[in-house]
Structure formats: structure tokens, C-alpha cells
Amino acid sequence: MINYIWFFMIFLGIIVALFTGNADKITEAIVNGSDGTVKFIIGLVGIMCFWSGVMKVAEKSGFTGKIAIVLRPILKRLFKDAAKDEKALGAIVMNITANMMGLSNAATPFGIKAMEEMDRLNKEKGTASNDMALFLVLNAACIQLVPTTIISIRTAAGSSNPGLIILPAIITTGIAAIVGVICCKVMQRHF
């Protein structure tokens, strides 16, 4: 549906420009917009490669494993059913740890595995369990210790201090995760 809406808006804009004599401005906007986008993406790719390397070093050095050790007792208290199953809890810990370190590409397979493991434990097939809902909320509001994507975007956009976002990101994602967990726990009692 959204494709139809975008097509309609673009088509209508072109028609209006043709009838008002502004077709040259549309062509100019397309060329300038494309040029700026390509330059931005090329700058972003280099920075993302750098941060991916830094995060890979953190992973290989065992730093992410140490975070996982700290998280395990906390997550055992949050997830009632998944805490009883080592496979499910292990996948949850690895997903959240990878997300916290900005390793979203590495976190995705762990997230899928965690959902599969929690679905295996789920008594009501086809309906998300409380643990599954909580996991989804924690993934959506995941605490970011190193927000590599935002730092990369700020760098590519020419920010004078792209790392300035780290403390606000930790605070806001931490608050979002806490509020999300509280909401899930309250809703679990009523539904």
C-alpha cells in the first residue's frame, strides 16, 4: 500500500511541475539529491567498517563475553520460562549482549534463535508468550553501550563531536528498557 502512496505523490508532483513550468527544478532536485545521498553513503560505509572492526575486536577479546556473564543473573530473573532452559537463555544473553555492543548483524541470528527456543517452550503455539513479548521489548529498547550506527551517521554528516551521543544514548536506552520491562511485567499480571 505504501508503494502506491509514494508513487501517487511522485506522479502528482511531476504532473503539477509540468503544468506549472517547473520541470527543470524537479530534474535539478533529483540530480542534487542523488549526488548528496551517494556522497553520504560512501562516507558512512567507511565509518561503519571501522566500527564493525572495533566491535569485532571487542568480541574476540572476550569483552562481550564478560558482559554476558554480568547479564545472565539479571535475565534469569526477568524471563520466567526461558530462565529454566539453558539454550533459550544463552541465545537471549548473546542477542542482548551483541545489541548492547552495537553488533546488530551478529545479534540478529541470536535473536532468531532465542525466539525459536522460546517458541519451543511456549505452551500456546501461535501466540507469543510473556517471555517472547518481553524479549521483543528489550530488543526494541536495547541498552546501547556503544551506539556505533549513530556515531557513524553523525561522523558522515560532519559532526564535530560524534561520540558526544554515547552518554545520552546509554541514559535514554536504559530508561526505555526499564520502562518497557515494567510495562511488560504489569501487563503480564492483567492479560
Rank of each mutant, 00 (worst) to 15 (best):
N3W: 15
Y4D: 15
I5P: 08
L12S: 11
I14V: 14
I15C: 13
V16D: 13
T20R: 15
A23I: 14
T27C: 05
T27S: 12
A29I: 04
A29T: 14
V38F: 15
V38D: 05
I41P: 05
I42Y: 14
G43Y: 08
V45Y: 08
G46M: 11
A58F: 15
K66H: 13
V70I: 15
R72N: 10
P73T: 07
L75A: 04
R77Q: 12
L78A: 06
F79C: 04
D81Q: 07
A82E: 11
A82S: 07
E86T: 09
L89T: 10
M94T: 13
N95G: 06
I96R: 01
T97V: 02
T97E: 00
M100N: 09
M100K: 05
S104D: 11
N105V: 05
N105Q: 12
A107E: 00
D119T: 13
R120V: 04
K123N: 06
G126M: 01
S129T: 07
L134S: 00
L134E: 00
F135D: 01
A141F: 11
T148S: 14
I151C: 11
I151L: 10
A156M: 05
S159G: 12
N161R: 11
P162W: 04
L167V: 15
A169W: 10
I171L: 09
T172M: 12
T173S: 15
I175D: 09
I178R: 04
V179P: 06
G180T: 01
I182D: 09
C183R: 11
C184K: 01
C184F: 01
C184P: 02
K185R: 14
R189P: 08
R189S: 14
F191Y: 11
